[in-house]
Design a protein around this nucleic acid. Structure first.
Lengths: 202, 202, 202, 202
DNA sequence: CACTAAGCGAGACGGTACGTCCCGTCTTTCC
DNA sequence: GGAAAGACGGGACGTACCGTCTCGCTTAGTG
């Protein structure tokens, strides 16, 4: 599986007969554009179909509902960012991964994931899909870094990696959903720094 | 009963002529029950009205949409928890406040606030209402504690109180929305402890 | 009972305690004005009440529904025309009565009676009220004239007075409801003349 | 089957895409049944839709309001009666036409046209539709007969055909709306006879 | 003359129907 | 045989009135 995972199976799209991928793309683009231009409230299946110049059935043949469409639209965009690695050190990799996520969320992907997270509160299947396909993969990459850090004696022995990940990612999602701050790189760096050093004076 | 919430105006309810408060309560109870029993998707104005034994107009006279109803239902329940203080020290107060929020979110209030946060992604007015009336008040209490901690020499001088609050509350909302962990007291304590000490070995 | 029946009991108004007659008039005027200005579709109880500067209950205290209000508004205006007599001969009296009715129907009373006849199709009580209080009184005056005409040898022996009345009044109501002609005096005279002479060449 | 009603377009139904005619019939039948069973007041779009086993939108796609539905239901039933001809003489044809109308009005069609005439008092469009599509066609057939009768020297030279038609049809509508008599064949014959001979003794 | 009973405005209330919008399925027609 | 177009059953929306009710305020009539 290369870094950019070509031939990736779509996240939510129904399987079956091979379907015209051009149409798929038109639909995803239409959905994305509509969300960005008019917000999720204006995102009806009718609207997507009309914008994509497509029959409604053509959408339903591929996705079970509009959340699934948005989810695929999100993954189509997020793929390149997925599981980014590259820092010189473990902790640097974590920081860069945080930055990568934040950068994406600052852009169009932020609008999409916000919708997905919102919809997921009403749709357990969607919730589990997001968790399995988006949230957990990032954790699964991060946690071993932290464990390695502990083994290396760089991080505290009593660090709970799961809790640590929550501390790092929690603020990002808080900002994403509540908009109390911007997900700038410097904000991410502050989160990272504060988490590393702790609040208490040494 | 918190120190400063007497005579509190309902969060979202429209004002105007005096209205029968019993009916208000019946509506909020009906809405809460329906949400908890059947989820937000089953929560229609019709359903609330029928369950409450009330005409639909009676609801619309008070709230502009069903999210506002749920918001008031949430505030009616959360009032006692609001802005809890009581720790012996500043930091203890923060920890207890976190616990109080987590405790509420473990119960029915969690279902309500999840829905509200989700709806808020589609409804800027609701988003700002939640931010102003629920999220920010907690921050406004917490930040002075942190500032005092800095002045007292207990917390690092370069601590950014806003970032610190995000680190403390972010994980709670992450768990609330993603359900990757339970908001147990011990989880809260871990969050608090990790944030205080930092990840790095001293 | 004089010709113009002062102290007339209102047609449909509920009895009971004496009520302020000024208010009654304001309501009837408001109802009439609204019908004439905006048509019956705009005639809601709310609209009448608002226009009359009156509470809705004040109307319901007096009339059971808005048709009854319109009916009283009609009678208040039609009273002077009621059972007009005055021709030198019997047949002349009939003709003048037809003219009087037509004249009223050309004016505001036409709008009111049209509404009443229409509502009466859905409301048997109203139908019978109109029949008893408006239609039949006119017939009861006309038929003896016709019978006298037969006895006098002026009208055919085999004339059926009921059928004859229908022939005279039928066209008026047809025009009122279908608007295929205007209820001018000359139209009435033609009706009368045609009915008297018959279609067939002598 | 009348001479010139083939390919007749439905009276009020909206055009556009071809629609399922079975559904159309189900709707009209449901509407007719409901009117006859429970009266027009019980005739709501909801009730029609439910009775017909049809979504409300399906009705609105075809008719702008319930009066239009009833109008089409009326026309669907009245088509066979339309513009009946068949008497040996002109006057006989007129009489038979009157009888045909009266016969229809004695039955279910009477209930429908009563409702339509009533509604038409509140709905100018409906009024003009009834006038153009139902009332006037009958007049347009009758008047030439009368004119021919005049030319043939059978009817008076000073007969006004329009007035004459009013004399013949007026009583039918008077009875229909006021119910002061039954529209029996013998009543129709009396109307016809009285109109032909006139009231005055020869 | 004050008191009290009612009439009154205002409008909240439970309820029904409206006409619209969208969902997810189905059917028709074209390519 | 897939796709566009859109009709279809269904259900929620938010509005408009209905007819009833409950509030205070005004206003007569009565003791």
């Amino acid at each position: 599986m290369s870094r950019n995972t070509r031939q990736r199976q779509s996240a939510a799209v129904k399987v079956g007969r091979p379907r015209n991928p051009r149409i798929q793309q038109r639909i995803l683009k239409a959905a994305t554009d509509l969300v960005l231009e008019q917000g999720f409230r204006a995102l009806s299946m009718d609207a997507i179909a009309e914008r994509a110049g497509v029959g409604r059935m053509t959408i339903y043949r591929r996705w079970p509902n509009k959340a699934a469409v948005v989810m695929d639209a999100f993954f189509a965009r997020m793929d390149p960012y997925a599981l980014f690695r590259g820092g010189k050190t473990y902790m640097e990799s974590i920081r860069l991964q945080l930055r990568a996520v934040a950068k994406a969320y600052r852009g169009k992907e932020g609008s999409l994931i916000r919708i997905l997270l919102a919809e997921a509160q009403f749709d357990p299947e969607l919730a589990s899909a997001i968790r399995e396909k988006w949230i957990l993969p990032r954790r699964r990459v991060t946690i071993p870094y932290l464990e390695q850090g502990i083994r290396d004696g760089f991080l505290r022995e009593d660090l709970d990696p799961n809790v640590a990940v929550d501390l790092l990612y929690g603020p990002i999602y808080l900002q994403l959903l509540m908009g109390t701050a911007t997900l700038s790189d410097s904000y991410i760096d502050k989160i990272f720094q504060h988490a590393m050093r702790g609040f208490k004076k040494a």
